[in-house]
Simulated assay, not measured.
Amino acid sequence: MKVLVIAKVAHAINAAFCLSLGDDSQPTWDDAPEWQQKSAIAGVEMHLANPDATPEQSHESWLARKVADGWVYGEVKDAEKKTHPCCRPYDELPPEQKSKDYLFRATVHALKDLPDADEAAATAVAAALAKVPAGQAAPSAPAGPGKIVVVYIGRKPAYTDHLYGTGLSFTRGQERAMPADIARKFLRHPDMFEEGSAKAVADAPAQPDKVEDKDEDDDTTRQLAAAKKLEDESREKENRILDLKQQINIMTKDSLAEYAMTNYKQNLDKRKSVAELRQAVTGMIDQYGVV
């Protein structure tokens, strides 16, 4: 929950900053497309996991995800064509675009100590349990590792989750029994989801190798597994790019020239500074990916 709250705040600050520049194209969080929400959440998670990351590294992480998703440089941001004016090395960004990375990083660090909703709930239950007199029934704790039935009640006739990376698709009124930790994320949006009947979980097949959902043909488990596989592959690819860029930052001119020729068949002008050569190789990675 904390990550989502920070992402919403960062998005709102970015929209306000854009408005100060005369750019009123940034939608509110609720109206923002799923790819934009997911991008903000990924940026928050990156800074929480890497508290020493600089604004430049923030942009590199964002750019790596964009390139991995098929985005390229374009003068106009276009989600359909996947073009974005910031799909270029950090040093080539205009000052106002660099400012966005500073604001984003500052927002995450200012709010990083917010208590997580799930952790706060668990703490509250533990405190309540400690105060229960002997022989008195204790309050129920949040659902454990079992399953919770979630019903989609949103306005749209169909919905596919990209915000939390599950890839689960719903039609209005459809119920899915899913792991409690995932269900709680959906239930944070009462305008779109509500908890369904617990009977669906009780009626689920007991065999661990079968889909344990409300209907026998329900594919929740399979979709979750497929989404996790894609997420793991994407994270592994992003980590490879980040690791490679870190290696680039310590390479000598000769090493950089050899790397560019071996992997990208590009000749580097070694009369340039090592910083310029590193930037050139980094640009190759951003444009062509890891070879």
Rank of each mutant, 00 (worst) to 15 (best):
Ile285Ser: 06
Ala16Asn: 14
Glu276Tyr: 06
Glu231Tyr: 11
Val201Ala: 09
Gln246Asn: 14
Ala138Asn: 13
Leu63Pro: 04
Glu119Pro: 03
Glu45Ser: 09
Leu114Val: 00
Ala126Lys: 13
Trp62Lys: 03
Gly144Lys: 12
Gln207Gly: 03
Ala110Phe: 07
Thr262Phe: 14
Met251Gln: 13
Asp23Thr: 00
Asp23Val: 00
Ala15Asp: 10
Gln37Tyr: 04
Ala280Phe: 07
Ile285Asn: 07
Val44Gln: 09
Leu168Tyr: 07
Ala141Ser: 14
Lys77Leu: 01
Thr282Pro: 03
Pro85Ser: 04
Ile6Ser: 02
Asp181Pro: 03
Pro27Phe: 00
Thr282Asn: 12
Ile41Ser: 08
Gly167Ala: 09
Pro115His: 02
Leu93Gly: 01
Met46Ser: 08
Val132Pro: 12
Thr252Gly: 14
Ala127Glu: 15
Ala32Gln: 11
Ile13Pro: 03
Ala42Cys: 11
Leu63Thr: 02
Asp23Gln: 08
Leu111Ala: 02
Gly70Gln: 05
Leu114Ala: 00
Gly167Asn: 09
Ser99Glu: 15
Pro179Ser: 08
Arg240Glu: 15
Asn50Met: 05
Tyr73Leu: 09
Glu80Lys: 14
Gly289Tyr: 06
Glu45Pro: 06
Trp35Asn: 13
Glu175Met: 05
Thr28Ser: 15
Ala227Gly: 03
Ala128Glu: 15
Ala198Leu: 04
Ser99Phe: 03
Val108Glu: 06
Gln174Ala: 06
Thr262His: 14
Ile148Leu: 14
Lys82Cys: 01
Ala134Asp: 15
Tyr164Val: 02
Val44Lys: 06
Met251Phe: 12
Cys87Trp: 07
Ser99Met: 15
Ile148Val: 14
Gly146Trp: 11
Lys131Pro: 04
His11Thr: 01
Val125Met: 12
Met261Pro: 02
Leu111Lys: 02
Glu216Pro: 00
Pro205Trp: 04
Gly196Phe: 03
Tyr259Ile: 05
Asp269His: 07
Pro139Cys: 05
Pro94Val: 02
Gly74Glu: 10
Val67Ser: 11
Ala49Val: 01
Val72Glu: 14
Ser234Pro: 01
Asp269Tyr: 10
Leu103Ile: 08
Lys270Ala: 07
Gly22Thr: 04
Gln287Trp: 00
Asp191Ile: 00
Leu19Lys: 12
Asp232Pro: 07
Pro89Lys: 02
Arg278Trp: 05
Asp286Val: 00
Asp161Val: 00
Val290Asn: 07
Ile148Ala: 04
His189Pro: 00
Ile241Tyr: 10
Asp78Ser: 04
Leu63Asp: 10
Lys228Gly: 08
Asp118Cys: 02
Thr123Asp: 15
Pro133Gln: 09
Gln247Leu: 11
Pro115Thr: 01
Ser25Arg: 11
Ala143Val: 08
Leu187Thr: 03
Lys185Tyr: 06
Leu163Arg: 13
Glu216Phe: 01
Gln207Glu: 15
Leu129Trp: 13
